[in-house]
Design a protein around this nucleic acid. Structure first.
Lengths: 195, 195
DNA sequence: ATAGGCATGTAAGCAGTTACATGATTTA
DNA sequence: TAAATCATGTAACTGCTTACATGCCTAT
């Protein structure tokens, strides 16, 4: 019962279908919560039968119909109760960090490639989040928006997303470059064509 | 089968018992992988029966005996195979970010307190990681250590830990301070004694 | 004496992942 | 004509969390 609140929070931004939520939760880091499509369809069914969200059929031309959902008053109550409870500790699972931790034993070549790939992904997410923030703040500058905007929550979590992805990108590039400078790896790395 | 590799990577730093590993994985963010003690005892049993680690009884005076584990050659092979496979995407689940996302609806008071608490935790972890890095590098400075050190992996992941906790702390303090400047919350927040 | 740290587990239940299934429409 | 996007699920499995269990030793 944890995805529940993430879904309710996401639905505060507007009416979304399961498919649309799946795209939002695929990025995940925006609100720092990843979820697979199957999870979302299951959770939406439960949330609706519990009366915390209300679904509505939208018929589209040239596309399958979809069901979009809105948070009910009961849903807002659930969110308020959630805010009062002590937060679950932040959970992070980073496969790549485990590889870096063991890099001296593993050999640096595959991990360096993975670090560059992760840096590219972080860069892409960073640009995505920056566009999202620009869209949220409209023509106001950041300081003004945070003073007068009516929905500062998504902006603040978006800022965290930007800071996180920027940090990740910079660290990946730094870490990827380090083994190349390493005296004990010098021969090995250069003879395999990685510089 | 994912905790497996995190445990193997942790055991590269030395011989540890389940209890000692539990303390390492409780911090988690060091190598970006949290695990509960029960998970670790179960995983250690499996790893040993698969021949990837070897256990050894250590009798202590004034304390219960413990079983400490070492990575076997087969275990190192497993790690090498793991390094070649494509990494699982980074997973993060942050309850607090969901609350911040919904802060305009939830009311800022409880969330502000939680942000300050999270900032304190991040600060504590940051200090822990900085001490760990200082210990790893000994009397060398960082640049020299990264050039000549024989185990740069834990140092690099530790650096990521520092950057992450620093970012988190700074963002929490910024986010916690923002609603107080918000014009629409001004009366509400001040009348409840939060400034 | 009692609380906390050391040390290791079991058992039940819930949450999350992986694989599979379907079918229409638009783009390359 | 094949691939990608839209749209929604089911089923089986694995992994994680929560609660419980035990017992000794050290510090307050």
């Amino acid at each position: 019962m944890a995805l529940r609140h993430a879904v309710l929070a996401a639905l505060l931004d507007g009416e979304f279908s399961g498919y649309e939520l799946a795209k939002i939760f695929a990025v995940g880091v925006a609100n720092f919560w990843y979820a697979a499509p199957q999870q979302l369809y299951a959770e939406l069914t439960k949330l609706e039968s519990d009366g915390l969200i209300a679904g509505r059929e939208v018929v589209q031309q040239g596309r399958p119909s979809k069901r979009v959902f809105t948070v009910t008053e009961a849903g807002r109550g659930e969110l308020a109760a959630f805010a009062g409870a002590p937060p679950k500790p932040l959970l992070m699972r980073a496969d790549l960090m485990v590889r870096v931790h063991a890099i001296d034993v593993l050999g640096p070549i595959p991990v360096i490639a993975q670090l560059h790939e992760q840096a590219r992904e972080a860069e892409a997410k960073l640009e995505l989040f920056e566009r999202m923030l620009a869209h949220l703040r409209g023509d106001l500058d950041e300081e003004m928006f945070l003073r007068r905007g009516d929905r500062i929550g998504p902006y603040l979590s978006g800022l965290a997303g930007c800071r996180f992805e920027r940090m990740l990108r910079d660290w990946c590039l730094h870490a990827a470059q380090t083994p190349s400078n390493h005296v004990q790896d010098q021969d090995r790395v250069m003879s395999r064509g990685v510089v």
